[in-house]
Design a binder for these strands. Structure first.
Ligand SMILES: [Mn+2]
Ligand SMILES: [Mn+2]
Ligand SMILES: [Mn+2]
Ligand SMILES: [Mn+2]
Lengths: 222, 222
DNA sequence: AGATTTGTTTAGGCAGTCCTAAAATAGCCG
DNA sequence: CGGCTATTTTAGGACTGCCTAAACAAATCT
């Protein structure tokens, strides 16, 4: 239907929009790894197809139809990630890359089959929500682990899947969705956090800790 | 590495070569569903990459490297077909189409994972041999069911996967690889065959019967 | 053999996606 | 406000894979 390139642009626009309104050409180009001129070109094409609204020099926003398309691709991506991890034993740092290519070629039947095989899941291995078939997506904004203060406790809900290195690092340490965590220490001047999971504690740099989203438990037992 | 188009051309050349030496431009174009000029163009490109040898006006032949590439793609295709059927419950008439797209995007790791999950299989759902990782392929030429004479018995070894309609038709009737068959009758003038599988007998047109390859048992009990 | 038919290649184009370089615009700062 | 700078768009090209039409080569028929 729509080309792989178009699907990837729509997905990128969706994700950039999540973190703040209209998407600039340069942000889109950066995310897609192309020159700014290329992004402009594609945006104009998508606008012609009514998948986005483009106000020149002001950025681009998905239309209802464009958002539907983007969520369809994201659904494929996240279902695939989970399937690769659960059914084929992929480690969670490798699923993203493989899903990135598969997402564009699987049929609706394939999507349906793995959805059922996985027991109609709602979250991918990184804790990201899987859009429903009708284009519904439950967004839950959680705090960055790096923003919590010492003494705070909570449960990991999401880990950014953008960096495979980081995922491997965190996976080994059990810092995965549904793990309970407690912030023991937080060094000043953007210093590292000391975090406890289970019986072990780990020292994490701010950068790494910002990849982890935590549902904080109210600190009412302090 | 190589584009999807190149992979499909190599695969098509491989299959055409199987049924008789050098491949003509028109046969290749026909198989690929493109104009003859397009096939010539791609052949010249593949020749430049030393994947085929092209003698203008005389046809094209895969080089050793080209054959390796073709077998790699065919291995992907057949493993995927089997995986879709076994692990995801696809019916055998739908696996081909899905595998046709997936074959180009799965990683070597994916290939390895489904190969192991399937117990290192050697045949796809249609009975076609799966090339080994090193590019080895065991070819076994079997008789067409349509060429057997009344009284002949044997075991179905392969069913051509080129026509989904035919596959559905045969699947319902239990005419699948490993099924034992006996030719009861064969009407003259290219008429239909009457074939027995298990307790039921079926009347099959020549065309359909030619899609079935049978390992004949010597007719020594006639 | 010469002529015709058939198959193949070359020539010239088009669409999609990307690029670099140049032009246009917006936002900021003195 | 007017000019500078950073961002964005336009212009012009490259490259892939496809197309049609025309030129060419081989095979076939008389
Ligand atoms: Mn992608
Ligand atoms: Mn993910
Ligand atoms: Mn293919
Ligand atoms: Mn097959």
């Amino acid at each position: 239907m729509f080309s792989q390139a178009m699907q990837d642009y729509l997905k990128a626009i969706y994700k950039l929009q999540e973190q703040g309104g209209a998407v600039s050409t340069s942000a889109l180009a950066e995310a897609m790894g192309v020159a700014a001129a290329s992004a402009t070109g594609m945006v104009k094409k998508l606008a012609g197809l009514k998948l986005v609204r483009h106000h020149p020099y002001q950025g681009v926003v998905l239309s209802k139809a464009g958002e539907k398309m983007a969520l369809e691709v994201i659904r494929h991506h996240r279902l695939l990630e989970l399937y690769l991890a659960e059914a084929l034993g992929y480690s969670w740092d490798k699923v993203h890359e493989e899903a990135e290519r598969l997402e564009h070629v699987i049929s609706e039947e394939f999507e349906e089959k793995i959805f059922e095989a996985l027991g109609r899941p709602t979250r991918d291995p990184h804790g990201d929500p899987i859009p429903a078939k009708d284009g519904t997506l439950v967004v839950a904004e959680h705090d960055r682990l790096s923003d919590l203060e010492p003494g705070a406790t909570g449960v990991i809900r999401q880990v950014s899947d953008s960096d495979a290195e980081v995922l491997r690092y965190l996976g080994i340490r059990g810092l995965v969705p549904d793990a309970a965590v407690e912030v023991l220490e937080k060094a000043p001047f953007n210093g590292p956090l000391t975090v406890k999971t289970g019986e072990t504690s780990h020292v994490l740099g701010r950068e790494v800790a910002s990849h982890i989203r935590v549902e904080a438990r109210a600190a009412d037992d302090a």
